[in-house]
């Protein structure tokens, strides 16, 4: 590292904001505030996606994660309850134990992760870079993410569409299509 990378500071600021928002969501009992903060969390993570070069993901996260998810959760909240009941203290301790065991296992694995930004890490060295070099010759679009999504891995995207169809069907079956009844806000 010859020169200090100033965009790293932006990353640190975004990480700090994500942590603050996450802890606020855990502590809040007002569901409206928790749902709105979940939207804020999505939007901040979309900003972080931009600094991590994932512009398509940032776009989708801002539209779908911060937009549609928030609307769905607000609708469900309006149909159910506005306030979460307080839980017993033992439950907090149980949650803390579960979280610390899972977190300790993950921290143990951090040492085996590739260094951040390493171009030769196993995840970055093989098939991803192949897509970049072969996209200009195979497919006539400059955005590699679009090329992979729609062409190289088109069947995955087709599967995604099937999942969304199944989910929409499930929501319709659960909430009913009868307009005389009280209908849900989803879909």
């Amino acid at each position: 590292m010859t020169e200090f990378d100033w965009t790293q500071l932006l990353d640190y600021a975004l990480m700090g904001m994500l942590l603050a928002v996450g802890i606020a969501i855990v502590r809040l009992r007002n569901l409206f505030a928790a749902v709105m903060l979940a939207g804020v969390y999505s939007l901040i993570s979309a900003a972080w996606f931009v600094t991590l070069d994932a512009v398509d993901v940032a776009f989708t996260e801002a539209a779908v994660g911060a937009g549609i998810s928030t609307v769905l959760m607000l609708a469900a909240m309006l149909l159910t309850a506005r306030e979460a009941e307080p839980v017993k203290a033992i439950r907090h301790w149980a949650a803390l134990i579960v979280v610390s065991v899972a977190g300790a296992a993950l921290f143990y694995a951090v040492g085996d992760m590739p260094v951040y930004g390493d171009p030769n890490s196993p995840a970055n060295a093989y098939v991803g870079m192949d897509y970049i070099t072969s996209t200009p010759n195979d497919i006539a679009i400059p955005n590699v993410v679009t090329a992979v999504l729609a062409s190289y891995r088109g069947f995955d995207t087709f599967g995604e569409v099937v999942v969304i169809f199944a989910a929409g069907l499930g929501v319709m079956l659960l909430l009913g299509l009868n307009p005389g009844k009280k209908t849900g806000g989803e879909e």
């Binding site: 998810s69 769905l72 959760m73 199944a166 989910a167 499930g170 929501v171 849900g184 989803e186």
Partner: peptide, 9 residues
């Protein structure tokens, strides 16, 4: 988002 919609339903 699809699974979230099913969960909320």
């Amino acid at each position: 988002v699809a699974t979230l919609a099913v969960g909320l339903a």
